[in-house]
Computed example of a mutant assay.
Amino acid sequence: MKLWTEGKLYHQGYQIGMTYEQASRGEDEPLELASVFRIFLIREGTGVLQIADRRYPIFAPGVCCFQGGEQVRFLAQAPLRMKRLNFMPSVLNARLEALLNGSGEGGTSDYQDLWVLESFTDRSDSYYGALPLDPAVVKRAEEMMEAIGWNLAEQPDTYWPCRSRSYLMELLFLIRQVYQETDLTPYPLPHAVSESIKPVVTYLHTHYQEKIRLEHLTELFLVNKTTLNEAFKKSTGYSVISYLNHIRMRMADAMLRNTTLPTTEIMELIGIQDDAHFIRNFRKHSGYSPAEYRNQYCWMLHQS
């Protein structure tokens, strides 16, 4: 995969460590250069994100921030519509790569530049690189990524490298702000599940927006109801339908805390049509109605 953009009419032969593309699904090829960072802006779709040997649900709309060397795959059984930006830290600051690998020293401004990359380098039990985004934030991030892509492709004047770099800095500051404010609640997919149950878990995480019946799953995975439910509960601690509801409530939880999407739209995104059903299940999940929960925990609401 090409990891830089080369000057054509202006700055012929000059290479800037950025590339941009639109994609209908994630690519799972490993990147050999440890210095390449990646931004995936996910507009639509559902799926599972695999990092090393762990799997996590994908947020849409949302952004994924990965540093070089991370082995990442998008396991999307449903189509994902996304934009992808690759960049090298040296685009921001020539000393950052040495600081990131521990082979150099920097000044105050260098560490300020490292700060803006924290959403890419931080990994903990509460953060694996994915952030849900509010529609207004998605729109702004998309505008900046498209502006970077246009400047890299068209190179309209002698300022195209600086203009691309400035849009990148603005995008990184926006992501860093979301990272700083977002209330992160990770929920990796069950790790120690049997091989026969893994495809079912993945299916539920990629099709939870759809109407799913146990009968459909038994036909799809060629197993009877009793066997499926018993094996599923042994691996996950939940019945199949309870686990599906758990996925939906956790997604609603994240959206209510981290976006200002209308509740009706959240219901549509998680595959629930009945208001009373949603309110009842969410209260059982959180102890609050959706409106009460948002008023209590939505950081964007409190910020505004």
Rank of each mutant, 00 (worst) to 15 (best):
E143L: 09
A147N: 14
Y159C: 11
Q155E: 13
P135Y: 04
T158W: 07
E142M: 10
E170W: 03
Q155V: 08
P161R: 03
Y127Q: 09
R163G: 01
V138I: 12
S166E: 15
Q177M: 11
W115F: 10
Y127A: 01
L172Y: 05
D110R: 07
V178P: 03
G149F: 04
T158E: 12
V137K: 01
Q155W: 05
K139P: 06
D122Q: 14
E118G: 07
P161H: 08
A141S: 13
D113Y: 05
Q112P: 06
L131F: 00
E142H: 11
Q112C: 09
L117W: 01
E142G: 11
T158C: 04
R163F: 07
Q177G: 11
G129R: 00
E142A: 10
C162A: 15
Y159V: 05
A136K: 14
A136V: 13
L133Y: 13
D110V: 04
L171T: 00
A147V: 02
P156N: 04
R176E: 13
L114K: 07
P156Y: 07
E154Y: 12
A153W: 08
D110F: 04
G149E: 08
N151A: 05
A136E: 15
I175E: 02
Y159P: 05
D110I: 09
Q112I: 11
V178L: 01
Y111Q: 09
R140L: 07
S124F: 13
F173A: 11
A141M: 13
P161N: 11
R165M: 00
E143D: 15
D113A: 07
S164Q: 01
W115C: 06
D122K: 14
A130M: 12
A136Y: 12
S164D: 06
D113C: 02
D134Q: 08
A141F: 06
W160C: 00
E118W: 08
L114Y: 08
S119R: 12
N151I: 00
T158M: 12
A130V: 10
Y127S: 09
Q155K: 09
D157Q: 03
K139M: 12
P132F: 03
S119C: 15
R165H: 01
D122P: 05
T121P: 13
Y111L: 11
I148K: 04
S124I: 11
A130Y: 03
D125R: 14
S126C: 06
M145N: 04
D122L: 10
W150Q: 12
E143G: 10
E146W: 00
V137G: 01
P132Q: 06
A136R: 14
V137P: 01
L168Y: 00
C162E: 15
R140W: 07
W150T: 10
E118N: 13
V137S: 02
S166L: 11
S164Y: 00
S166W: 10
E146A: 04
M144C: 08
L117E: 08
L133G: 05
C162R: 12
L174Q: 11
L168D: 02
T121I: 14
M169G: 03
P161Q: 11
L131Q: 01
N151W: 02
L172E: 07
D113Q: 04
D122G: 06
D157L: 05
G149H: 06
P161M: 06
P135L: 01
S166N: 14
L133Q: 03
L168A: 00
D157R: 09
D125K: 14
V138T: 15
V116P: 01
L172N: 09
D157G: 06
L133I: 10
